[in-house]
């Protein structure tokens, strides 16, 4: 495939070179997925059938917690162990200009240049929840191309962007020292989704306090699901600066993978991921159907908005009326 033909090649024709691990094809198919549209669907169906072998690891944490730096170190260790590592790093899109600055590669200096480490930066393009719309399809592409594990780095999250847990087999939550006290550690949200806790920047003097807070928090979660086999939630202190703890993190990720395989947890998570993707895909279909610029619907959209603005009908009722004709249309 030359550069010239790459311009016009159909997405379906990219599938074979993707499966053969060709970098340019993988990259281009990812761009097509990000663009969306129907042309790429056939290729994605094919890719989906070939994916499902890789261990999908989510890395999440607040902005500035050191996810990218840790990811870089992690990938270097995995690479040294002979694995082909796929990385998808998600960064926010500007709500004002629609542009973005994707800076994760800055921390991955030692990695770039090695074709066995595939790094793709992805802007959220308005998606909430910490991932971009195309993230999981891009993960499938890396998976099908033979990268394993596939590491997905979310945007810097607040307390509530927990989509990654619906998308990964193992979730690593990175906490940085010096952010909040032990009450933060017992709050609901991001911390709850961890399979592995990391306290980054452990070269800093206050890191040990964060480790202790987290460990205390974990002792409080007494046998939440006593029936299921328990995974002892580890807290790993790491330093991207010195490399401390990174080997242990690799071991814990592998241990979690082995645990899932041993306990049928993997199947359960695969089902959970499938269910979530089904819902997301359905949402997307609906959203495409009812794009603001499109007219139509049972009662006209404008009428529904008028009635809602006048507080005559509830959004829920209006939404039902909006989608009713589409539903009837598919039932015939």
């Amino acid at each position: 495939m030359s550069a010239v033909t790459r311009l016009r090649v159909s997405s379906l024709d990219l599938v074979a070179p993707v499966l053969a691990g060709k970098i340019t094809a993988i990259a281009r198919l990812m761009s097509r997925v990000e663009s969306g549209g129907g042309e790429v669907m056939g290729a994605l169906e094919e890719i989906y059938r070939h994916a499902g072998k890789a261990h999908i690891v989510g890395i999440t944490g607040v902005a500035g917690s050191g996810k990218s730096a840790l990811l870089a170190k992690l990938a270097i260790r995995l690479r040294a162990a002979g694995r082909r590592v796929g990385i998808i790093a998600v960064d926010p899109t500007s709500p004002f200009s629609g542009g973005s600055i994707l800076g994760d590669r800055i921390r991955m200096n030692e990695l770039s240049g090695d074709p066995a480490v595939f790094i793709r930066s992805m802007a959220t393009r308005g998606s909430l929840g910490g991932l971009a719309r195309a993230t999981l399809d891009a993960g499938d592409i890396l998976d099908a191309a033979g990268y394993d594990p596939v590491l997905i780095e979310t945007v810097g999250v607040g307390q509530d962007e927990v989509e990654i847990v619906q998308a990964a087999h193992s979730t690593v939550v990175v906490s940085a020292p010096g952010l909040g006290d032990d009450i933060q550690a017992v709050k609901a949200g991001v911390l709850e989704i961890a399979d592995i806790h990391v306290v980054s920047k452990c070269d800093r003097p206050d890191a040990n306090r964060t480790v202790i807070d987290l460990k205390n928090m974990l002792t409080m979660t007494v046998a939440a699901a006593a029936s299921a086999p328990a995974w002892p939630l580890p807290v790993v202190a790491t330093s991207a600066e010195s490399g401390e703890g990174v080997d242990e993190l690799v071991e814990q990720i592998d241990a979690h993978r082995a645990f899932l395989q041993r306990t049928d947890g993997l199947r359960e998570r695969q089902r959970r991921i499938a269910q979530w993707r089904l819902l997301k895909a359905a949402e997307e279909l609906l959203r495409d159907e009812f794009k603001p610029q499109q007219e139509g619907g049972g009662r006209g959209r404008a009428q529904l908005i008028d009635a809602m603005t006048a507080r005559e009908i509830h959004p829920h009722v209006a939404a039902r009326q909006l989608i009713e004709p589409a539903r009837r249309g598919t039932e015939k």
């Binding site: 761009s31 542009g99 994707l102 590669r105 800055i106 770039s112 240049g113 790094i119």
Partner: peptide, 23 residues
């Protein structure tokens, strides 16, 4: 635009691999 910044002191090999992967 989506802007990917690589940071300082890169080699041509690194830059090209990054550009290709990022498409």
């Amino acid at each position: 635009m989506d802007v990917i910044y690589t940071g300082l002191h890169r080699t041509p090999e690194q830059v090209v691999m990054a550009a290709v992967q990022e498409d």
